[in-house]
């Protein structure tokens, strides 16, 4: 009985969480009149042709172009983030060195640093270096283990691996880097997956940084292209087209989340990382 009540409450909340997304998909297939006359998400006469217009967008480029742009940011960013975070976490988890305590405090500090204070001087710096409107301001910071929570998650995970493994490798003649590569890396695979997935999702979501750094439409990532379409379509007409663009824009994130979901939710739970 009690369990049934629990199921009922959970189901009701789950419905509230998911329904807006179902509505979005349904509404994109409705006529503009129908979108605003019914709460039910299934369209009466689904019109898939709207997706052709959505793919073409209101700009000179297709959605495919913006996807490609976004992936050109995500790919190096993920690679940089994984390499730098793993090296830094390895240093913290396995070695003793001068200023270690201070460095660790700094790591915690950067995690709580409000990004709003740093974003404007960085904009000025990138502009002086003549690198605005390139992907360097969006990708290069990842090379410096800029995401403290990744490092933190890796440290936690590495500390759980017995040090005897390292010792054994060392006796066999492995240096520090080869120990990392052959002994620790295979064990921390789930965290590397989590870092990849989070970098993917966060980059898909990121709006403020490209808004500031990227100015030519040709180089827009997906988020800016969506904003451009939403703004230029405005109220009145072609609303289903904007909604269809939104649906298309969400597909990669949903797909990646779906694929990684099993490994990933347990990974965040272990690392205490938030979305």
């Amino acid at each position: 009985m009690k369990k049934l009540l629990r199921y009922l409450i959970l189901t009701a909340i789950a419905a509230m969480m998911i329904y807006p997304l179902l509505w979005l998909v349904g509404a994109s297939l409705k006529s503009n009149d129908e979108i605003f006359s019914s709460a039910w998400f299934i369209p009466k006469n689904p019109d898939f042709s709207v997706y052709i217009g959505a793919w073409k967008t209101v700009t000179p480029y297709t959605m495919g172009h913006y996807f490609l742009n976004t992936f050109l940011i995500i790919l190096p960013k993920t690679l940089f983030a994984v390499i730098s975070s793993v090296l830094v976490a390895y240093g913290f988890a396995r070695f003793d060195f001068p200023l270690k305590k201070l460095s660790f405090a700094l790591l915690m500090g950067t995690m709580f640093m409000p990004s709003i204070v740093t974003v404007m001087p960085m904009y000025i710096l990138w502009s002086r270096l003549g690198l605005l409107d390139t992907y360097i301001p969006l990708t290069l910071p990842a090379l410096f283990a800029a995401e403290g929570s990744f490092v933190f998650m890796l440290i936690q995970f590495m500390k759980g691996i017995p040090k005897e493994f390292d010792e054994a490798a060392r006796i066999d003649g492995c240096g520090a880097l080869r120990t990392l590569f052959y002994i620790l890396l295979p064990c921390i695979k789930p965290v590397v997956v989590s870092i990849t997935v989070f970098t993917f999702l966060w980059t898909m979501n990121d709006f403020l940084t490209p808004l500031i750094m990227i100015s030519s439409v040709e180089k827009y990532p997906l988020s800016l292209a969506l904003r451009l379409s939403a703004d230029s379509t405005g109220d009145g007409y072609e609303q289903n087209r904007v909604l269809a663009m939104s649906v298309i824009g969400l597909i990669p994130s949903v797909a990646v989340f779906g694929l990684a979901q099993k490994k990933f939710v347990s990974g965040i739970t272990a690392g205490g990382l938030s979305g």
Binding site: V88, F92, R94, F97, K100, S103, L107, A176
Partner: peptide, 15 residues
């Protein structure tokens, strides 16, 4: 004693 420092140097540079 500097091996660890070297490993975390990307973070320090970034900070």
């Amino acid at each position: 004693k500097y091996t660890g420092l070297l490993l975390i140097s990307p973070f320090l540079a970034g900070a």
